[in-house]
Design a binder for these strands. Structure first.
Lengths: 163, 163
DNA sequence: AGCCAACCATTGTTTTCACGATTACTGCAG
DNA sequence: CTGCAGTAATCGTGAAAACAATGGTTGGCT
């Protein structure tokens, strides 16, 4: 039998005192387990989850690319220090940098052909892993999960944005 | 207005092709935002999220403590290299190590008085943050979220446990 | 007793992350 | 035009993570 509850899984003796805590720990455990599988997939191609995310953002941005700061804002998992992440991608030839001519503070980053090629190698495995991980839930439950997660993070996000 | 959807938040132009991907990204974004706040709280006391988790586990284990390997299994977010995590806690005087007398391979780790004191300083702030983050959801929605999260990770967890 | 597979913890090494301070540039107010 | 707050990116440094490899210990098997 699978462990039926998080309480059992992590060997916790007492029931949770707060439903908020239980939900929080369920959230952390689930995200870490699922992220670990994607991490392994990305590492097999020399990428981290963050650097894969950056490449996906830049593929969506097209020829002109995006300023570093905007990349940081668009990332699913926020990260300070986008500079060195782009450094590593540049060293591997997956992205290219160029100073903006209009505002010389900003650095425009764009994906290279090589970067696009690497992403394309990953497209099918990524889709397959998504289905393997969550395909057992129906579309209705997935939608419900997405909704609850949006609701859960909304106050914290408001503070971040408007802070 | 708050951004109403993840698609908007991360500046994604195309709708998600897979509902699995949308749920996955919602999961990653929510957990990273909520975890960041706890991380800041813990760092104000010199702890990381992982080391706080270890201390909580050891407080629950009582006087006898727990073997390192079992700590690793009980952690919410799995981590190889429990050794150096315990190293750091030991350096700070928050935990103590002792070789087991019955099986000299295993190292029994227990929390110190100082460690318990530090946890007690955090108990109220932690509860307060849980309520601040998720208190706006009713108990019913929190339970629904916990259920969906358990359901989401179940297949991956089965594979991990049963190899 | 001696061998060996399984197990636990540790260490070495490289990569990545976190945090703060710094440099460069822009636009605006005086 | 000069100073100044605000913004973008970078760099220095130390902490933490991932991954592979090593050494000590046990229990079973012959």
């Amino acid at each position: 039998m699978s462990p039926s509850s998080l309480q059992e899984e992590i060997g916790k003796k007492n029931p949770f005192d707060l439903p908020e805590e239980e939900a929080y720990l369920n959230l952390m455990r689930t995200s870490s387990i699922l992220a670990a599988e994607f991490g392994a997939l990305f590492r097999s191609k020399g990428l981290s989850e963050s650097s894969y995310n950056v490449l996906r953002i830049l593929r969506g941005a097209g020829e002109t690319g995006k300023p570093s700061q905007q990349i940081a804002r668009d990332m699913v998992v926020q990260l300070p220090d986008i500079t060195r992440l782009v450094d590593r991608l540049e060293t591997k030839g997956l992205v290219a940098r160029a100073r903006s001519t209009t505002d010389r503070r900003v650095v425009q980053v764009r994906i290279t052909e090589q970067g696009i090629g690497l992403l394309e190698e990953l497209d099918n495995p990524v889709r397959a892993l998504h289905r393997k991980q969550l395909g057992h839930m129906g579309a209705d439950r997935l939608a419900a999960l997405s909704d609850l997660l949006s609701e859960a993070r909304q106050p914290a996000e408001d503070l971040q944005v408007r802070g």
